[in-house]
Design a protein around this nucleic acid. Structure first.
Length: 470
RNA sequence: GGCCCGUUCGUCUAGUGGUUAGGACCCAGGGUUUUCAUCUCUGUAACAGGAGUUCGAUUCUCCUACGGGCUACCA
């Protein structure tokens, strides 16, 4: 069975790049009837953020990505949080030391402090540590019980290793260039390399799908697999998501948290669709994929090898498409959660607006004029308004007050009749809009007025005239 | 600096040993519309460079350039 994992560290929010990694893992698992595992990589105790795990899970869940196993979902391979697996890492570390593939380096307190305070380069420290490389194994293990130590992986000083990546093919590394990697820190926690290799193996992970930033560590991981005499999973390194300047997508140059986009009124389907297409594309020109189509169409073979710039403009376009094609009822439910409870949203309002908004937040802005009105003071030099227009508005008000029920067509007829009867010409539609809504632009004013209802229209025109006509 | 990865319109991308190199976003212009938007039509715009292989390379190989990632007791 295909088993893949998404393995974030709980350092805060869910990164857009993380969302894509999770998504690709999810799609791959789903289309193969496999399992997607959530594993929390919290081995850096200095970077833990409270609530990050819950946040991660709920954000992922909002996007439609659910896990088959994880800290929040029981499975046969737990625990799924690395800080709860310390004894496993320790046992395996001892195994590595015993087989001669790793060695502890001892750090008397003063040396530890010296290293920390003097800012010595890691190369120099590693160089110094090679003196521990060939210490007696049993003695070293005994010494670990009462002395400060770290453990390093013993990397062959010569030779090369070639590792296969599904997207990039075979990659060769010169081992002499790699320093003995620390796999167990002085606080007793493993580093990423050790923990992820052990967990991927123990959790029966078949495909490691992760970001390209990990390819440089590939030889270390491969060596670890060799040392344990374990079979390697298939590696799939995803191209990076980039800023406008082509550097790795990061905060600082815009929003990178999934939550930011949610807050800005992006719908999850649009985000997912857009992000899926950053690095993957089908063989045709299709761009709009719903979640099921994505599951069926996605393939690792068609993942690109080059990085992709995250372009909000295209995301906005996707968002527009999804909103306008959404069921109005569903939209209404979403929007209801965003607006003041006293706003009595009607489905007609959503129908009227959904073709033209870019984000859910635009709804909020545009809906506002249905519920909040204050007349605009027209300046004397505004050529849109004249006595004729004010008079016209007055007539319209009269006409509307005789109508209990209006619809868009009645509203239009009313206006055209008044125009004809009183021989009024010129642009009357814009003044009507301004009087009725307080804004210059917006959706079809006849529809707008009919949703507002004749009574409210009358009130608003009255307020407008009160303010602008002596 | 070293190692590794990458390079088709501004962006996301399709594509092939012979194509007018296709689509989408963006941008510009036209049309529709009582406004804005929507919608619609049209347009601008790309194979990083150099060698080689070949009758023929955007496509295959090598080199260069450029970009990026990594180079932590971070992941």
């Amino acid at each position: 069975m295909i088993r893949v994992r998404f393995a974030p560290s709980p350092t805060g929010y869910l990164h857009i790049g993380g969302l894509r990694t999770a998504l690709y893992n999810y799609l791959f698992a789903k289309q193969n009837d496999g399992h997607l595992i959530l594993r929390i990589e919290d081995t850096d105790r200095t970077r833990l953020v409270d609530g990050a795990i819950d946040n991660l899970i709920s954000t992922l869940s909002w996007s439609g990505i659910e896990f088959d196993e994880g800290p929040h979902k029981e499975g046969d391979y737990g625990p799924y949080t690395q800080s709860e697996r310390l004894d496993i890492y320790h046992k395996h570390t001892i195994k590595l030391i015993k087989s001669g593939n790793a060695y502890p380096c001892f750090y008397p307190k003063d040396r530890l402090e010296a290293i920390k305070s003097k800012n010595i380069s890691s190369e120099i420290v590693a160089e110094y540590d090679t003196r521990f490389r060939d210490l007696d194994i049993d003695e070293s293990i005994e010494k670990m019980k009462y002395e400060n130590h770290i453990v390093r992986l013993k990397i062959p000083s010569k030779g090369s290793i070639s590792i296969s990546d599904t997207i990039r093919g075979s990659i060769e590394f010169d081992l002499s260039l790699i320093q003995d990697q620390i796999i167990l820190k002085s606080d007793g926690f493993p580093t990423y390399h050790l923990a992820s290799v052990i967990d991927d193996h123990l959790m029966n992970i078949t495909h490691v799908i992760r970001g390209e930033e990990w390819v440089a560590s590939l030889p270390k991981h491969a060596l670890l697999y060799q040392a344990f005499e374990w079979e390697m999973p298939t590696f799939v390194h995803l191209p990076l998501l980039l800023n406008k300047d082509k550097s790795k997508l990061s905060k600082r140059q815009g929003d990178v948290a999934v939550e930011d986009y949610k807050l800005k009124g992006f719908v999850k389907d649009a985000l997912i669709n857009y992000v899926a297409l950053l690095g993957w594309h089908g063989s045709d020109n299709k761009e709009i994929y719903d979640f099921d189509e994505l599951i069926h169409s996605f393939s690792i073979e068609r993942i690109k090898s080059s990085g992709a710039i995250f372009d909000v403009k295209k995301l906005i376009w996707f968002n527009q498409q999804y909103i306008k094609n959404s069921d109005s009822e569903a939209l209404l439910n979403l929007i209801n959660q965003m607006v003041p409870t006293e706003w009595n949203l009607k489905i007609e309002m959503i129908d009227l607006l959904k073709d033209s908004v870019e984000t859910l937040n635009d709804f909020k802005d545009q809906l506002n004029s249905f519920f909040v009105y204050s007349p605009i003071k027209i300046s004397a030099d505004n050529h849109l308004f004249s006595d004729t227009i004010y008079n016209f508005l007055n007539l319209l008000k009269e006409a509307l007050s005789k109508q209990d029920d209006i619809n868009a067509n009645i509203f239009k007829d009313l206006i055209n009749n008044i125009k004809k009867e009183h021989a009024i010409s010129g642009n009357i539609w814009k003044p009507i809009r301004i009087a009725l809504t307080g804004t210059e632009h917006g959706p079809d004013i006849s529809c707008y007025a009919s949703i507002l209802g004749s009574k409210t229209c009358v009130n608003r025109i009255q307020l407008f005239l009160d303010l602008n006509v002596d």
